[in-house]
Design a protein around this nucleic acid. Structure first.
Lengths: 222, 222
DNA sequence: TAGATTGTTAATCGATTAACAATC
DNA sequence: TAGATTGTTAATCGATTAACAATC
């Protein structure tokens, strides 16, 4: 933890994974776990786990370890799984529809309450119980419902303009799937960019390394 | 760069973003760019950019900067955009279909050649020019076509078993969208886990911080 | 040549790991 | 009490930033 009490991004990014693994342990019926056991499952060091968890306070018990249920609940609370942030999704193409139906927003502190698309042919179509509205209706919808989180599944050309509009309508958080680095110059707005293309390219790099290293070890001699 | 010539993961993960931004610059018709100008656009330090690029050799020119076209090409070559790794996708549900149609595999060194699903009702349906095959046909298809990369859009329960099967069939790389940490205990296999749920949870955490900090600054006094 | 900007080394910063005293 | 395992401090490691000599 830094001096001002804020938690480093490296720690935060590990929390959802802890939460997931603890859920698994719970399903297996485990009551307690030590940092060492958990470290083996998660392929981390026990030291890192203890260090991470102690950013938020002493959830463990010396000589015993951690209560699985309790620890999971605490991490969930930190992440905000019990929140109900009103969420809208813009862009109901292939990806937008898949996100809307595939992601369990509720268990992650978000309530998907509206879906919008610019294509009038989609208006009225229902995706996961939610009717698609036309993007023209975003403004009135936001004024009536005050959503906080926006999921952007729109082409890169429109992203910045839509984001600007949504910020003006009071949206605070953006889950951005567009092929564009949403750089928000506003205060108190958060953005999570998901670059699937970048992710695939990283895999291509790694694939290239392993498939060409397989047969060529000539460089390995000192 | 480390002693053995391998590049750190932190550097690699930045390469696709460089590649993207250079593409934008190219579109804008820019011929040259200095590390300082690029750093302002990308919100990095100029130092980091020079450090990163020099892992791979001197692409720049003192007193001038970098040729946009040349630098983009070099990074593309490093990432492997010119490769043609044969790729199959398993699981043609909402997400699988969206990935198959939404991602441009070709520009990222991958060739999507087959789509599979366990649901016989989907067999024969065409997604982005590719017919869905039944998962029973994976083995014969792999023996005939030798794919290298597998995209997994399947439920978590099946993931490890399918991955094991695919490793035995010679697959080398996994782009894993299932809600499961694919931990590969085999040598020379690479995995890129995409945890959309974790990504949303990270955003929920951040949303929680900003929306509750907005009105409460009481802790800020030393 | 003078100005600009790289390539590269050195300094700093932060994150991870190790160690151990505290304590259940 | 003895054994186990945490919470926490100190040591290490790696990544980022700063500085500057090399050079276009």
């Amino acid at each position: 933890m830094s001096k001002d009490g804020s938690i480093s991004a490296s720690v935060i990014k590990r929390l959802p994974r802890y939460y997931r693994f603890l859920g698994e342990l719970q399903k297996e019926g485990l009551e307690r776990i030590s940092s060492r056991e958990l470290s083996e499952r998660m392929k981390l060091t026990a030291s890192q786990i203890r260090q991470d968890l102690n950013c938020f306070g002493g959830f463990g018990q010396q000589g015993y370890g951690y209560h699985v249920d309790e620890l999971r609940m605490e991490i969930g609370k930190i992440l905000g799984v019990d929140k109900h942030f009103k969420t809208i999704l813009i862009g109901a193409g292939n990806l937008g529809k898949a996100i809307a139906t595939h992601i369990n927003f509720e268990t992650r502190g978000c309530n998907l309450i509206g879906i919008f698309d610019i294509n009038p042919k989609l208006t009225g179509e229902v995706v996961g119980n939610i009717p698609i509205r036309h993007t023209n209706d975003i403004e009135s919808f936001c004024e009536a419902n005050s959503p906080v989180v926006a999921v952007l599944c729109i082409p890169k050309a429109n992203t910045q303009a839509i984001a600007d509009q949504l910020v003006n309508l009071g949206l605070k958080a953006f889950w951005n799937f567009s092929h564009y680095d949403l750089s928000i110059d506003y205060e108190n707005i958060v953005v999570e960019n998901v670059h699937l293309g970048d992710s695939l390219l990283t895999l291509t790099y790694a694939t290239n390394i392993i498939t060409s290293t397989d047969t060529d070890n000539s460089e390995e001699i000192e």
